[in-house]
Nucleic acid binder design. Structure first.
Lengths: 191, 191, 191, 191
DNA sequence: TACTAAGCGAGACGGTACGTCAAGTCTTTAA
DNA sequence: TTAAAGACTTGACGTACCGTCTCGCTTAGTA
């Protein structure tokens, strides 16, 4: 048994909640560590004891808060599964969580360590699911076996990320259909 | 004619060059206004006199330095033209210019004004060209007329931007072909 | 005769007036060279062409504007003459001119060249007059011949300068009498 | 007891020492906040946390460093006590401390708040002592009861301050005697 | 009647120092 | 030992003036 005061799990959660709320709020401009600490009623040092940097907190808030988001369905129709998944991702991108993701992408551009951490903890797990589902589509004969799977996924999800980061066009649920209309003919197996 | 000493065009160019070189260099972490000023042999105030922020300088450096980049060819083959253009964009993304674009995307995430400026001065002009070429493809019967053009463009270029900002996979010239292999079947007009 | 456009005497006067007005009126504020130039409708360069520094302008404004101030009377009564002179100095110290003098004393504390210039052009000429009058008082038998004249003058005028620079007590016309009441017994020749 | 890290008294002392040394040194022209911070091995922010301005630091350095300077003796001879005190003040004015005082007088000319602070913390306490001693002189019959005490003090100490700020004449220990020779006849009680 | 040499208002230039802000570390007392 | 509080170092920020340097224009001799 460790001696001394034990870690306050409640404080940890308050930090994550505060980070999520502050970064995810509409009118945020720049959320500082002090803001998070004050909002969580926690000492700055407590944050630094458990996270190496402000961005790490945001990443944790993102990962913890999105853990069960956008699962893949198993309807037996691969295209329909992707459609449902795309709609889930669009919902997430339009929610406060979208702001956290944007924040992390921003930080990733100037910090390779953050970029890698973001990919490792957020991107890859989700990518694996999509990739697995695409392979399953090949196995069941819905998807052409000679495609380049990574590129197909980039083409399917790329428009979402593009609109999230560039903001040149809004992101609506119906866009899921437009994407698949454009992509699926080149992906679907020939009869 | 304005009175007073005229703006020093050489100093302006030195600032843009310095911004381009510093931000575009491999090992940059965070390029400060002081860095740019020192590297350009210019007073900080001179930068602030003409640009509202560091990011505005970077945007200028990007726009000025990329003005004639990646034009569209007119081979008579729409898919081939897009292929050539994609390869041009890939080259740019892998050049120092790619670092400037990443920087601007990063800043755009927390500053709506910068985001709009980036879209207005960099994104839209290029987007218009792609859009025009896609419409030309429809006119000449290479592209299906019932596609959603904006979404098709997002699907074609999305993978490039995705790999630029996320960095989950490298960006090679041959990826242009993979993208079109995945996309074009759904875009090309039926015979 | 020198060729070229001759110095604009009107601009010179506008600068001096502006300096006098700004330094003399603004309650405890720092008047900049730009302020003076703007207020005089003159280019900054025009000021620097003729004066080496802001303080030199203020000194000029002071000297030019005070040239005929506080002359010594010749009533035949040395004490009465000093009384009249003290009252004149008190009036000057309480006028806008007092602010210019304070300004120059301030600058003198950190710039030996300014200090010397201030003494040479403002202080010494006035000091000579007082000294001469004190010597005249000795000659006519009103003042003890064994005093230390410089110190007597410092004791007579010191309280004025002290109250001007420290501001611990106001400076009223009647203070002239109090000073002489305190000093004169040690200065006046014995009967 | 307040929580949190307590103020670093050593850092505070280093700042005051550095300010004293830098401002008091012969060849100083303009001592900046950065100079003081660097010389004290302290962050600029730490200075701004505890002092509102550079001048406030200098005032603190002056007050802390001069606290026990120039006390009044109690020889039983009022004139002799003032002589000793005057000599003490002359020594201070000729020491590095004199440079700090000049600096503060300079700043006082353009900043009413500093002027008041200087009077409150440096001038008045010392003035009170002199005033009390003068009143004691009246009580014991050494000084005429009908003098204007404030003006007498201004006449006694005025020459010192005048020479400190104007610099028209040097300040020597023997000047204490000259001052009293000039003043005392008008101050001393008649036999 | 030109030509030339200043001086002029205007304002951009390279600088220095400012005072503020946030990041991340260190040092207290309290639990 | 951890938590909260808050002082600390560090370093970039954007601003204010400084004193200098062009601009295009005006003014006054000289040719």
């Amino acid at each position: 048994m460790p001696r001394g005061r034990t870690r306050d799990q409640d404080a940890r959660q308050r930090v994550l909640d505060a980070a999520f709320d502050l970064v995810g709020s509409e009118e945020y401009r720049k959320v500082t560590i002090n803001d998070i600490a004050a909002s969580a009623n926690v000492a700055k040092q407590t944050i630094y004891r458990w996270w190496p940097s402000r961005t790490a907190v945001v990443l944790d808030a993102l990962v913890v808060g999105s853990m069960k988001a956008t699962p893949f369905g198993e309807s037996g129709d691969t295209r329909a599964d992707f459609r449902a998944h795309l709609r889930g991702v669009i919902r997430v991108f339009n929610s406060p969580t979208g702001a956290l993701i944007r924040e992390l992408i921003a930080e990733s551009q100037s910090d390779a360590a953050i970029a890698e951490e973001f990919r490792r903890r957020f991107w890859r797990p989700r990518r694996e699911l999509s990739l697995a589902h695409l392979h399953r589509g090949i196995d069941v004969g819905h998807v052409r076996p000679d495609i380049e799977p990574e590129m197909v996924l980039d083409a399917i999800y790329g428009p979402l990320w593009l609109r999230l980061t560039i903001g040149h066009l809004p992101l609506r649920l119906k866009d899921a259909d437009d994407i698949l209309d454009a992509i699926w003919p080149g992906v679907a197996a020939q009869r």
